[in-house]
Every structure is written in structure tokens, then in C-alpha cells.
């Protein structure tokens, strides 16, 4: 009985050793892939960083207001962030490739899903970036226009424009990623609708005289009452 037990244990140990011996090259293969991937990812990061520096990407990011957002969140510059993103995407790809070499059942499907997801991730990041750019540009344009027209609360108007564009862009990005797309779109629709309704009410109640003057001037045959909006008799030119 003892000899049987020892025989079984020896056979089991042999099987484990054989299995380990069969599996070891795959582990080594995976480690090599991960290591090589790490080196390649570092190289890609360096290349991305150089290209973005040459293209003055940080300047563009400053124009869009993305730098200010990142600074507020104690994050590095957009160049650094993008090059790190390139590094992690590349290395994660190699890690997944390495794991797939191990032959774990069902893992290949996850890798394929991840690779399919990548283009959508990149597109949604593009949408986000250019959306921020548009939000920054239009909110600044509104701010300057409102200040020069001496309107009250230009910052609030500018903030409202910025918020609306960002909401719109974020909903587009989420839709691209297929993450809670319906919820996000419905939430956006409600917010946008509420904002427009609020603005319509505000304009209707507060700006009815302005609207009347505009409509009279635009379509009426009789001239609207004389406007005395010249700040004085000065001619700048």
C-alpha cells in the first residue's frame, strides 16, 4: 500500500514536472513578449513625445484650454499624457499578446474584443479633444463679444456656452464608446432642453423690448424708435 502511495505520488510529481516543463517555455515566451513589448512601448512613447513636441502640441492644448483643465486636476501636460497613453496602449497590447501565448481557454476572445475597442477609444478621444477645442474657442468668443457689448454677466454666458458644448461632446464620446449611450443621450437631451427652455423664458421675459425693436427694425416698414446706444460722439478713426 505504501509502495502504491509512493508510486502515485511520484507519478503525480512527474506529471506536474512534465506539465511545468511543457508550460515553462510558454511562460518564458510570454515574459519575452512582455519585455520586448515594454521596450517597444518605451520607444513608441519617445517617438510620440518627440513628434508632439515638434508639432507644438502643448501650444494647441493651451489654446483649447485643455492645459488649464489638466493643471487643475494636477495632471501632466497633454504631450506627456498622450505619449503615456501611447506607451500603455502598446504595452497592454503586448501583455495581452503574451497572455494569449499561454493558451488560456477563452482569453483570445477578450484580446480580440480589446483590439476591436481600440479604434473607438481613439476616435472618442479625438472627439473629446476637438470638442474641448471648440468649447474653449466659442466660449472665449462669447466672453469677448459680451464684454465688448457691455452685456451683464459675460462669464456666466461664456460658461453656459462652454458647458453646453462639453456636454454635447462628452455625450458624443460616450456614444462612440457605447457606454451607457442611451442614458447619456437622454441626459444630454434633458439638460439641453432645460437650458434652452430657460433661455427662451429669460429672453421672452427680460428681452421682449429688445426682440420687439429687432423685429421692427428687421421687418417693419416704420423705423424703430431711435436708439441712443452710442457711448458718446467720439469717432475712433
Amino acid at each position: 500500500m505504501w509502495s502504491n502511495f509512493v508510486g502515485e505520488m511520484t507519478r503525480a510529481a512527474d506529471e506536474i514536472l512534465k506539465g511545468f516543463a511543457r508550460f515553462l517555455p510558454r511562460i518564458l515566451e510570454m515574459l519575452v513578449i512582455v519585455l520586448v513589448g515594454w521596450v517597444i512601448a518605451i520607444l513608441l512613447r519617445a517617438i510620440a513625445r518627440s513628434i508632439l513636441k515638434i508639432a507644438r502640441f502643448d501650444k494647441l492644448s493651451e489654446h483649447t484650454g485643455a492645459t488649464q483643465l489638466l493643471r487643475g486636476a494636477a495632471l501632466p501636460s497633454l504631450t506627456e499624457l498622450t505619449s503615456r497613453f501611447v506607451f500603455w496602449i502598446a504595452w497592454l497590447g503586448f501583455i495581452l499578446l503574451g497572455i494569449s501565448v499561454l493558451g488560456v481557454a477563452g482569453f483570445d476572445e477578450h484580446v480580440a474584443t480589446f483590439i476591436e475597442f481600440l479604434p473607438r477609444l481613439v476616435v472618442s478621444l479625438f472627439i473629446l479633444f476637438f470638442g474641448l477645442l471648440a468649447a474653449s474657442f466659442f466660449s472665449r468668443a462669447v466672453l469677448l463679444g459680451a464684454v465688448n457689448a457691455n452685456l451683464s454677466s459675460p462669464r456666466i454666458i461664456s460658461w453656459a456656452v462652454r458647458t453646453m458644448i462639453i456636454l454635447f461632446v462628452v455625450s458624443m464620446a460616450f456614444e462612440e464608446l457605447s457606454i451607457s449611450s442611451r442614458t447619456v443621450v437622454v441626459a444630454f437631451g434633458m439638460t439641453f432642453g432645460a437650458l434652452m427652455f430657460g433661455l427662451a423664458l429669460a429672453f421672452g421675459l427680460g428681452g421682449k423690448d429688445l426682440a420687439r425693436r429687432y423685429l421692427e427694425k428687421r421687418f417693419g416698414s416704420e423705423p424703430a424708435e431711435e436708439q441712443h446706444d452710442h457711448e458718446d460722439e467720439l469717432s475712433p478713426l
Binding site: Q68, R140, L143, L144, A146, V147, N148, N150, P154, R155, E231, D232, E233, L234
Partner: peptide, 23 residues
């Protein structure tokens, strides 16, 4: 003589400085 609204010029300067800080 010319009609000039100096108060308004002053108000619009100070308003611009305060509102356009980030610009």
C-alpha cells in the same frame, strides 16, 4: 465742445479687466 461719456469709458475698462482675466 463735444459730448463724451467718461464714466462709461471707465466702467467698461474696469469691467473688461475683471471679466477678461483668463484672456
Amino acid at each position: 465742445p463735444m459730448r463724451v461719456n467718461r464714466k462709461r469709458l471707465h466702467q467698461m475698462f474696469t469691467f473688461g479687466i475683471s471679466q477678461l482675466e483668463p484672456v
